[in-house]
């Protein structure tokens, strides 16, 4: 990586693994539960957060010296909300189909605690370029978990991936269903996401015991 210094590169790579926003910082859990029943929704949400978090981080970072500390949370909220509304309007005008897929997530992005968390913890104290990288890194870390959870929930819950049947037809009993396999209806309801996230956290911490807090 000639483009980035080692320190800058770690802003992107850390959140992907040992400082993951979902599994380590435990931020953004609510949306991870809500929208991961389908892989497609997970991917769309990940991309939306990537955009809002990276641009929002830059905007907050540019304003960091003039934001009054008393109302900084409100200022952050306004920046997120404005960005999300602009994106939504532009998509509605120029990519109507896509905007319909996204509409469910608009509200969820504004309330996503990863975004406020990164503004507060990073962008307020760092320059625009580093904040941009931090936004990209954290959004990717968030997205990776979303996609993993979405993959297992859609595969085990509906027997499809991106809406395409991969295990056969459950009604006509073809493919895997012909030997008695059944979809697990539990996987498409939100508590299943908690279990999948829990397993990811378990795997991650048993591979790297340094992450385990001693209480």
């Amino acid at each position: 990586m000639a483009l980035l210094t080692k320190k800058d590169a770690s802003l992107i790579t850390d959140p992907l693994a040992d400082n993951n926003p979902i599994t380590i910082q435990v931020l953004g859990i609510c949306s991870a539960l809500a929208i991961t029943a389908e892989l497609k929704a997970s991917v769309v949400m990940a991309i939306s957060v990537l955009f809002v978090l990276s641009v929002g981080n830059v905007v907050i970072s540019l304003m960091r010296n003039i934001i009054p500390s008393k109302i900084r949370i409100i200022v952050q909220l306004i920046v997120v909300a404005t960005l999300v509304i602009i994106v939504d309007q532009v998509l509605k005008a120029f990519a109507y189909e896509l905007s319909k897929t996204l509409s469910v997530f608009v509200g969820l992005i504004i309330t996503n605690c990863i975004i406020m968390g990164r503004f507060e913890a990073f962008a307020l104290g760092n320059g625009p370029w580093r904040s941009f990288l931090d936004g990209i890194g954290n959004a990717l870390g968030y997205g990776v978990i979303l996609v993993i959870v979405g993959f297992f929930r859609e595969l085990l819950g509906s027997g499809t991936l991106f809406g395409y049947p991969v295990l056969g037809n459950p009604i006509e009993k073809t493919g895997l269903y012909s030997i008695g396999y059944e979809n697990n209806g539990f996987m498409i309801i939100p508590p299943a996401a908690l279990i999948v996230v829990g397993i990811i956290i378990w795997v991650q911490r048993s591979r790297n015991p340094a992450l385990v807090e001693d209480h």
């Binding site: 500390s69 306004i78 509304i85 602009i86």
Partner: peptide, 28 residues
């Protein structure tokens, strides 16, 4: 700038609302 002063906070909030409001109205 002393960003802790009450007057600054009020002015900042007012300016921000005007900027964001007109930006969104223009977009819409």
């Amino acid at each position: 700038i002393n960003t802790d002063k009450n007057s600054y906070t009020v002015v900042f909030a007012a300016v921000m609302v005007v900027i964001v409001g007109s930006l969104l109205a223009f977009m819409s």
